[in-house]
Design a protein around this nucleic acid. Structure first.
Length: 490
RNA sequence: GUCCCCAUCGUCUAACCGGUUAGGAUACCACUCUUUCAAGGUGGUGACACGGGUUCAAAUCCCGUUGGGGACACCA
């Protein structure tokens, strides 16, 4: 309703790095806005910096978006394939007398900027080449000096209306004559976005806060070309724990990295959306459909948000627990294969066994990789016992207890957890010890660890043969350390 | 050095155009459950940056201070 014209938005990543979570979130908001308004979401690759762009990064971006469940209606378009178009518009600006050639070399400019900085002066371009006489220009042309095209910033003030921030104003005196065409004939970012956003019919430019200082420049270009700018919405930045803009030095920043670390796309999607937006009520765990239903640009906050991995982990745990055991098993299967704990044949024949492990471990998983961390003893022999557990639970009389237990278990055909529990408790009573004096040593014997799921459930899954084997091994082990202890005393 | 943006628990946030014991989530702590660790359940600690206005009434509107962040490339 709010727009008579069809909404068209875009995400325009540059393939000079992996898909940053900030870019991903901007993509999300754009996508949500497009879907919400029945509009189009366009993917454009800003690869005019040929040197720094790479194919791998492009793949990472495309994969990351797809993985998150963000699909695009048009594109990907590549700016590197549209160079003639920018040239045409640059010429138009030049012919209109709104731009001039600059023969200063990048080195000269950098030097001047450095000096300005040292002398604590403003580092704006000094319009050196604007005042060039015809002769001077001819001379430079004869020398075949490379030239860049600079936009001639007019006097006055430039402002724009931002959906999130309201009106933003800037005096043109603060804007330097920025370059729109580099000397190699490629456009500069500010020209390229303007031309592309116009050519692609973009109605709303939704992007990071860090672009606010660029926006007046772009508005100026729209004006110079006699075009109507799109509506702008500048998103708050995502910060690292130290409150500075999230970047490489904060560690994990790319979507693919989170994928590889065992996060679910639904969880990351949900988490990212809530970083800077809320539905207005207390809901947090929200499906894509729910989010879509309540999403609006107006509810996006202005304040930068710290990326809190702990909360992401919690949310991921919630999503993991929503999965069925079967589905979750499928998701952790690759890591089991990779570890070499199972093979194809095993997967097929022992599916029930695997599902029961998943069901046991699911509640304590926060990432998919937690599964292999917690499940080793279901697939491998226990090679060593946790040290502090040995001290605490392997006592002088423990071998006798375990021996007695082993004797009873050997007679059992029913290895159900209920039956196991009564065996343990009965025996403990007969031995006149607390059940825990039996439970803890056995857990350590069978898993090598002091913590984990309920013991009887573990025993049921591991099965009689294996449990007996491990108990036998433990009896020998404790005898050995007991002898050593006694030997040392004598 | 210049310009711009922002300001509610440690963190993410709610409180529609001024009236709330400032709500939720996470994290943390306690209790509970219990064979351990989690999960679950219950409870708790914890915030309107400061100073001026405007108003009967300000977290909310205005101004300033402070603080934080961002941008000032022939990168995007």
């Amino acid at each position: 309703m709010e727009n008579l014209e069809k909404v068209r938005v875009r995400i325009a990543p540059s393939p000079t790095g992996l898909l940053h979570v900030g870019t991903a979130r901007a993509a999300l908001y754009n996508w949500l806005f497009a879907r919400k308004n029945n509009g189009k979401f366009i993917l454009r690759i800003e690869d005019t910096d040929i040197v720094r762009s790479s194919k791998e990064m492009l793949t990472s971006i495309l994969d990351g978006l797809s993985w998150l469940g963000i699909d695009w209606d048009e594109g990907p378009f590549f700016q590197s394939e549209r160079l003639e178009i920018y040239k045409k518009y640059a010429d138009k600006i030049y012919e209109g007398g709104k731009a001039y050639y600059c023969y200063c070399t990048p080195e000269e400019l950098a030097e001047r900027r450095e000096r300005a900085k040292r002398e604590k002066r403003d580092l704006k371009y000094d319009r050196n080449c604007l005042g060039l006489s015809e002769e001077e220009k001819m001379k430079l042309e004869d020398e075949k000096r490379p030239k860049a095209l600079r936009f001639l910033v007019p006097e006055g003030e430039t402002s724009f209306q931002d959906i999130i921030h309201g009106q933003v104003k800037k005096s043109n005196e603060e804007i330097e004559d920025f370059i729109i065409m580099k000397s190699d004939g490629t456009p500069t970012y500010n020209l390229a976005v303007v031309v592309d956003d116009f050519k692609m019919g973009i109605t709303h430019t939704i992007r990071g806060d860090d672009h606010i200082p660029n926006t007046p420049k772009q508005v100026l270009l729209y004006k110079a070309l006699n075009l109507t700018p799109p509506k702008f919405a500048h998103l708050p930045l995502i910060l690292g724990e130290d409150k500075s803009k999230l970047s490489k030095r904060h560690g994990a920043i790319s979507v693919t990295q989170y994928r590889d670390e065992g996060f679910l796309p639904e969880a990351l999607f949900n988490f990212l959306v809530l970083l800077g937006w809320s539905p207005g009520d207390d809901r947090e765990i929200m499906s894509k459909e729910e989010i879509l239903k309540s999403f609006s640009l107006e509810r996006i906050s202005k304040t930068a948000a710290v990326f809190d991995v702990e909360k992401l982990e919690w949310m991921n745990g919630v999503y993991i627990n929503k999965l069925s055991d079967e589905k979750l098993l499928d998701m952790v299967t690759p890591s089991l294969l990779e570890k070499g704990w199972v093979d194809r044949d095993f997967l097929e024949k022992k599916r029930e066994f695997l599902v029961s492990i998943v069901s046991l471990l699911k509640k304590r998983m926060r990432r998919l990789n937690d599964f292999v961390r917690y499940s080793s003893y279901f697939f491998n022999d226990v090679e060593e016992y946790e040290n502090k557990g040995v001290k605490k639970h392997f006592k002088e009389d423990t071998p006798d207890h375990i021996k007695a237990l082993k004797k009873r278990l050997e007679k059992q055909d029913d290895f159900s957890q209920e039956n196991l529990e009564s065996i343990f408790r009965d025996l403990a009573e007969e031995l006149d010890i607390k059940p825990s004096r039996l439970i803890h040593p056995v857990r350590l014997a069978v898993t090598g660890e002091t913590v984990g799921p309920g013991l009887f459930e573990i025993l049921e899954i591991i099965g009689k043969n294996c449990v007996i084997k491990r108990l036998t091994k433990t009896i020998e082990y404790i005898k050995l350390i007991n002898n050593e202890k006694n030997g040392a005393i004598v």
